[in-house]
Design a binder for these strands. Sequence first.
DNA 1: TTGCTTAAGCTACAATTGTAAACTTAATTG
DNA 2: CAATTAAGTTTACAATTGTAGCTTAAGCAA
Lengths: 125, 125
Amino acid sequence: MSDNLASKITDSELEVMKLLWRAKDALPVTAIREQLQESKGWEPATIKTLISRLVSKGAVHQEKRNVYYYSPVITQKEYSSWATKDLITRIYNGKARDLIASLVDSDGLSEDDIAELRDMFKVEE
Amino acid sequence: MSDNLASKITDSELEVMKLLWRAKDALPVTAIREQLQESKGWEPATIKTLISRLVSKGAVHQEKRNVYYYSPVITQKEYSSWATKDLITRIYNGKARDLIASLVDSDGLSEDDIAELRDMFKVEE
DNA sequence: TTGCTTAAGCTACAATTGTAAACTTAATTG
DNA sequence: CAATTAAGTTTACAATTGTAGCTTAAGCAA
């Protein structure tokens, strides 16, 4: 994913993306609105603006049926991994291990997490 | 560190923080400018604005000597760990291990990183 | 001491973001 | 078919951010 795309997904827009990622299929505004209006307390107009911005920045695709249906162009994986690398670049001088060290070291990991990570790194060839 | 503080350090401001973190002692504008003017191509006025904003948001402390000397209030560790937790909250549903899984899984880790992490999580058994 | 060079403070201004209303067009319903 | 409603488009507007100039005050050199 190009820096252009992901870097421009703002916090509010991300809420829309999350919803689209959760959905298996493309969704019409109605469906999007239904969820965000309640969970976020946003006005329909606000939600529409966010969707439009995402479409114009190429993060969401719109398909005309009876009414437009929206689906994510950028996958959640792409986005998360981009965001993570971005954090590493900006804050950890590009060193992924420093991120993890920081997590370990600031109690960012639960016992469970650590157990799981131990596993994760054990089996790895 | 409160959410208030860290969440408000913007990208440009972060460059100033990084410099202050690197410095062992408080620095006068001159010193800060010297470095950022070259590395970032910023005008003196810009640098001054960033410093002022950091001071007013409480991330940097200023001490009047002959001239003001600036030093970080928020430590780099505090900031990184905050930023990391923030990422986890926003993108990984609060699950630190998902962050790491994503790193592993998107080739965000070099062989070296993995070796080191394996050490880090080595089972003492 | 008087102006010259900066530091510090205040002001500016465009782009982005969060939030939304107003207007226009198309669809649904009586 | 006319009226209502909902979808889609355009416009708005304040806060934040990136970037910087202008003004005033103060220290230093001549």
